[in-house]
């Protein structure tokens, strides 16, 4: 079972959470202008990464807040937890050329990611 470090509540059992799939998938700005192919991409196609994967979780029986998590899909290690709307912490450096924020990884069992 995953021990998930909720950014508001600290480490909690996976059973308190709901999975929200791939993070950073924006709703299309002009849905009416999309081709069938593009609409299919938005509706049905998601990354299925083997390795570090940015995904959404909802702490449904706790604070009821959504957040993003970076997790390895092979080892299931949780590498970072960060607010929705913020870029992936492991990609920001490459994308913007600025200094990457400190990863909250590895997450300690005490859940130091408040």
């Amino acid at each position: 079972m995953l021990l998930i470090p909720c950014p508001n509540c600290g480490p909690r059992d996976e059973t308190e959470f709901h999975y929200g799939g791939q993070a950073h998938v924006a709703y299309p700005e002009n849905p009416a202008e999309l081709t069938d192919r593009e609409w299919a991409e938005y509706l049905f196609y998601r990354d299925n990464t083997k390795g570090a994967f940015a995904e959404r979780w909802l702490h449904s029986t706790g604070c009821r807040q959504w957040f993003n998590m970076l997790r390895d899909t092979v080892t299931y290690d949780i590498q970072a937890v960060y607010p929705m709307g913020e870029p992936r912490p492991d990609k920001e450096n490459a994308a913007t050329g600025t200094t990457a924020p400190t990863l909250t990884s590895p997450v300690s069992p005490e859940g130091a990611v408040k």
Partner: peptide, 10 residues
């Protein structure tokens, strides 16, 4: 519920 390639679950 989560994506995984680990051949193990919770």
């Amino acid at each position: 519920s989560y994506n995984g390639y680990g051949q193990r679950g919770s």
